[in-house]
Nucleic acid binder design. Structure first.
Lengths: 127, 127
DNA sequence: TGAAACCTTCACATCAGTGAGAAGGCAAGC
DNA sequence: GCTTGCCTTCTCACTGATGTGAAGGTTTCA
């Protein structure tokens, strides 16, 4: 698909999709006329990038871990091209992500408890 | 305590502590000589601010939710000064934080699964 | 008395994202 | 063919948020 359709289907402006390509997060093919050509999977990939950016990860980190985040039905990179540094990097990022989750969880719980205390009628709405 | 001690105990540079005050996240008292004077609780508060910033929340959001995140042993603001907009804001932020947690959790699981597949010996280290 | 810690302020750095201009590709309709 | 309209291309410059560096001055403390 072309950039306009990907933008409509993801809600991400074309300007940003080009920016993510510049940041090496997306790698669309090019048609003969120079137009970008995205595979179907780009829809999910863009949503994933958005979610990770919203969660405070930098484009550099995302660039590093993206190859290992493919859906189960996709092919992972061959373990051959996995260096020790790469696994170390992944482990480090995993720890940092876990720390974020813990921090967000703690504070989310505090907010929910507070809401439950002052407005018990809406308390249990979220999972 | 003064800013230097708070900096040592949190690992956050004094420059940043002053910045957080400028952003209305910290409100130290002032001694007669103009020096900032932080209560003991500021140590936890600074760590909380750091964690939330690292997790992608903006200073504006943090400024909004901080009053409701105090430790159990602290006093919550009186429900009297809770407007409908405030609870709505808190509920909205709670949802967004939950979305972040979900996104990070999904991707963390993917990384862990990948690591487990290529280097099973280190697989179950993290919780 | 001199170093270390503190104060304010201005300017700069980085990162993620945006606006806008100028130009090319392409299909529909005159 | 030729215009109209929309989509695409690239590039330059800019914004806003978070954070830093450094100058120049005051206070504390050994």
């Amino acid at each position: 698909m072309r950039i306009g359709e990907l933008s409509r289907r993801t809600g991400v402006p074309t300007r940003m999709l080009r920016y993510y390509e510049e940041q090496d997060l997306l790698h669309p093919d090019r048609a003969d006329n120079g137009y970008r050509s995205y595979p179907e999977a780009a829809v999910y990939r863009v949503q994933q990038i958005r979610g990770l950016l919203d969660s405070g990860l930098t484009t550099e980190i995302i660039r590093n871990i993206l190859p290992f985040l493919d859906r189960p039905d996709q092919l992972h990179p061959h373990p051959d091209c996995l260096t020790a540094e790469t696994t170390a990097l992944l482990r480090g990022e995993a720890e940092r992500i876990q720390a974020r989750i813990d921090c967000l969880g703690r504070n989310l719980r505090a907010i929910r408890e507070y809401l439950a205390a002052v407005a018990p009628d809406h308390a249990g709405e979220q999972a």
